[in-house]
């Protein structure tokens, strides 16, 4: 069993409801096992769901789709993706009501820009999930918004009736199989100055919406899209700690710093985020590639291979020897 040495705070939850939304999409309800309120989140936020799948620790980010402010439970929707890394298949096939999972605290990489005079939302397919939470929030604060939502068909579209019933004319649904298309150019040209645009959906759709808007003179500052950053994981590797006379293994979801700590070697750190420079470690020798992920070292230092920030950086290759 892989044990995570990740020290960031986590939330233990129990799955209390699983709903088949469409033939491909399931909705999961998570409630905290300790009964305490969950952290508040905002529209656009996601959590990283940790799944212990045998010896593999999977970590997948999913947008929170419940109403922001509801702290008794979180809801996510997961689309079955047989070609993915395996997380969605695990959620669909192995997770049942009563299953225990672990979540990260909410993170928002797709926040609402509150300066906007109006919010123009675009969603495609499963990309509807962050949009649901955003609209719930915008409606609560009385902000102007509209949603344009593209789906394959009435049956494949998630939450169509709920959206029509709740938001009426503020929602326009476009069904591929009916030949319906978002009238993008007309729509974009009609927006009042100060409108902000948000898009979440398949890559092709996002590119189409964003490039059309740019072509009509929309500034980059008014364009927002959801881009999930992959968790800082990678292939496992070995590190030789010369000063401690130890060889350690770094797991795929473990940082070099965590592995050093797990081996009982005291290593300095402050931020654990690649910025403060406290954990800077001298590289004695290496045969392979240092994967620098920090913001601290300069480009020249990254190229030089003399230093590494073990809190976020990784290694691929035959041998890495550190002065630690």
């Amino acid at each position: 069993m892989t044990k995570s040495a990740d020290r960031t705070p986590k939330i233990d939850v129990r799955v209390t409801q699983i709903v088949d939304v469409t033939s491909e999409i399931k909705r999961f309800r998570f409630e905290p096992t300790d009964g305490k309120p969950l952290p508040v989140f905002a529209g656009g936020a996601h959590v990283v769901v940790e799944m212990e799948d045998g010896d593999t620790l999977r970590r997948n980010p999913y947008s929170l789709m419940s109403s922001p402010g509801a702290t008794d439970a979180y809801n996510i929707s997961v689309r079955r993706d047989p070609g993915g890394r395996g997380g969605s298949m695990f959620m669909h096939d192995r997770v049942t009501v009563g299953s225990l999972l672990r979540l990260s605290h909410p993170v928002n990489l797709f926040p609402i820009d509150r300066r906007a005079r109006k919010h123009l939302l675009f969603a495609g397919g499963i990309g509807i999930t962050p949009t649901l939470a955003m609209m719930s929030e915008l409606a609560r604060y009385g902000d102007a918004f509209e949603l344009n939502y593209a789906v394959r068909s009435e049956n494949d579209g998630a939450y169509l009736d709920q959206l029509r019933n709740t938001y009426g004319k503020r929602v326009s649904i476009y069904r591929d199989d009916q030949g319906e298309q978002i009238p993008l150019t007309t729509l974009l040209a009609a927006q009042p100055l100060g409108t902000h645009l948000y898009v979440c959906g398949p890559g092709g759709m996002m590119n189409w919406v964003l490039s059309t808007a740019e072509g009509l003179g929309w500034p980059a500052q008014n364009l927002h899209s959801e881009r999930f950053l992959a968790p800082p994981s990678g292939s496992p590797y070995e590190v030789r700690l010369a000063a401690s006379d130890l060889s350690i293994k770094v797991g795929p979801h473990q940082s070099m710093l965590e592995a050093i700590e797990a081996a009982g070697v005291d290593a300095p750190y402050l931020c654990r985020g690649g910025a403060c420079g406290q954990c800077e470690t001298r590289v004695i020798s290496f045969d392979g590639t240092l994967l620098h992920n920090d913001h601290y070292l300069t480009d020249d230092e990254h190229a030089g291979g003399q230093k590494v920030m073990p809190c976020v950086s990784r290694f691929e290759g035959r041998e890495l020897v550190l002065d630690r």
């Binding site: 960031t8 705070p9 952290p39 605290h105 993170v107 985020g273 910025a275 913001h295 601290y296």
Partner: peptide, 20 residues
């Protein structure tokens, strides 16, 4: 010294529940 550039990058990634 590049102090503000590094500090800004760090703060942009500041997480809920993990104050510094």
């Amino acid at each position: 010294l590049g102090v503000f550039e590094r500090a800004l990058k760090f703060l942009l990634n500041l997480r809920q529940g993990q104050p510094v």
